[in-house]
Amino acid sequence: MSSNKEEVKLFGLVESPFVTRVEIALKLKGVEYKYEEEKWGNLSETLKKYNPVYKKVPVLVHNDKPISESLVILEYIDETWKQNPILPSDPYERALARFWTKFIDDKCLNVMRKVSFTLDEKERENAIEEMEVALQFLENELKDKFFGGDEIGIVDITAAFIALQEVMGLKLFTSEKFPKLFNWSQNFNNHPIVKEKLPPKETYLAFYKARLESLAASK
């Protein structure tokens, strides 16, 4: 079972999809933790001490031992608290899950940043085309209710930011174009734990609006 809540801390930002990943995993596992909210552009010295290499959230601190990088943290959580596994027990299935989490971060995340924050219309159109190619791979891979089968797994948690596309004001997939992904996003967003941990839509919209205005001002 989980340790008492004083032994587990999560340093995060409410707008960060990487932090959301960790919160969903901790909640699925039933792990009690203390949440330490950081400030965008003004991270605490404690955070920098715990993550001196990247100086960014999320950082999970378990018994005063810090772990950084969301995918590393997810695997640590799964190995430390055995209940409600988010990684498959079969070695081949585990390897596949790791492949798709890497694909989501390497391909989908970078392109989604371009779609969200590129001001040049032509570049944005190219990014949307690139994103649709990546989404088609995920559409083909999705065989059940979730990537993890009937229950949420590590691939679903990693892809949380894709399920949030509408919250960010994007329309990257529809029920007509990507029916399996569309149904997956509805199931994921309506899962009780995900609903509890996802920041309000207004929080995301305000954050992305501020980022876009900042980019426009720096042109």
Rank of each mutant, 00 (worst) to 15 (best):
F146C: 02
I162C: 11
S185H: 13
G149Q: 05
Q186C: 04
D106Y: 04
Q165C: 12
F146Y: 03
S185M: 13
A159G: 14
D150W: 01
L142Q: 05
S185I: 05
R124L: 11
M112G: 06
L109Q: 14
K145R: 12
G153W: 10
I157E: 02
L135Y: 10
A127F: 11
L181V: 10
E139V: 06
N187T: 01
M131G: 03
R113P: 00
F137E: 03
F182G: 03
K143R: 15
N140G: 15
E123F: 07
T118K: 14
E151K: 15
W184R: 06
D156A: 05
N189F: 04
Q165G: 08
L109S: 09
G148Y: 08
I157S: 04
F182W: 10
Q186F: 06
P179L: 08
I128N: 12
Q165T: 11
E166P: 12
D144M: 08
I154L: 09
M112S: 09
T174Q: 08
E132V: 00
L119S: 15
G149D: 07
E123N: 13
N110C: 05
L109Y: 15
N187W: 00
F173R: 06
T118E: 14
I162S: 03
M131E: 10
V155M: 04
I128C: 07
K180P: 00
R113S: 07
S185P: 11
N110G: 07
I162H: 01
K171A: 15
E151D: 12
A160E: 03
A127Y: 12
D106Q: 08
L142T: 02
V155Q: 02
I152S: 00
G149V: 10
F182C: 06
G153K: 10
T118W: 12
Q165R: 12
A160K: 04
K145W: 02
R113G: 05
L138M: 14
F161N: 01
A160S: 13
T174H: 09
L119Y: 12
V133N: 11
F146Q: 02
E166L: 15
I157D: 01
A134F: 09
E151T: 15
S175W: 00
V133R: 05
N110S: 12
G153C: 12
L138D: 03
F137W: 02
E125D: 15
D105E: 14
Q165W: 10
E129C: 03
A127H: 08
K122H: 08
M112K: 05
T118A: 07
R124P: 11
V133F: 14
K171D: 13
V167W: 09
F117W: 15
G169N: 01
V115G: 11
F147Y: 14
S175A: 11
S116A: 13
K177S: 02
A163E: 07
L119V: 01
E176W: 07
